[in-house]
Amino acid sequence: MKRRLLDLHLYLGLLCAPYLVVYGVSAISFNHDWVTTPWTSEWEASATGNSSATDAEQADEVQRALGLWGFIPAKSVARDEASRLSFVVNRPGRSYRVSWSAQQSSARIEETHRGVVDVLRGLHGLRRMNGAPLSVAWGLYSELSVWVMIFAVATGIYLYSSRGDWIGWSLLGGGSAVFAALAVAVW
């Protein structure tokens, strides 16, 4: 039983080890607000949309036509005085500010790159991205990693229990008590 649990602990840990590194680096970056200097580029592309649809639906359609991955914040969808539809598409590491003209069937895109740290922050908990069906695979990996973390904590304590010494039990009790007290303090 213990041998099998240890094997599962090891192999599931190996499967999720890269996710733990992504999670660790991104957690530290959130805590310290690491921001890299963004750089932007601009380009134009042709894109057609359904003029009878709502602005939000048109934005979705233009995003698909342009092949951009990411989410459109509802608040970013707007029309200017020249009736151009503008919206933002956000994805890990990058954002796009799109200005689309239905008459000319063309879009101007301002692309902002935020670097690898922002990619890691975006991958922290990412479940899926519009326009990128394969991103579901990352979502499943995130889901699996969450369950593996819970399993690893439980089996780690169980495996330790057979040869545990007072230092380990003190760390488990003390660490849990300190964390619980801090959680209550910021609750």
Binding site: G156, I157, W169, L171, L172, G175, F179, A180, A183
Partner: peptide, 12 residues
Amino acid sequence: ALALALAVLMYA
């Protein structure tokens, strides 16, 4: 792992 068990569990 033991010292941070509860914290890791909470985050998961």
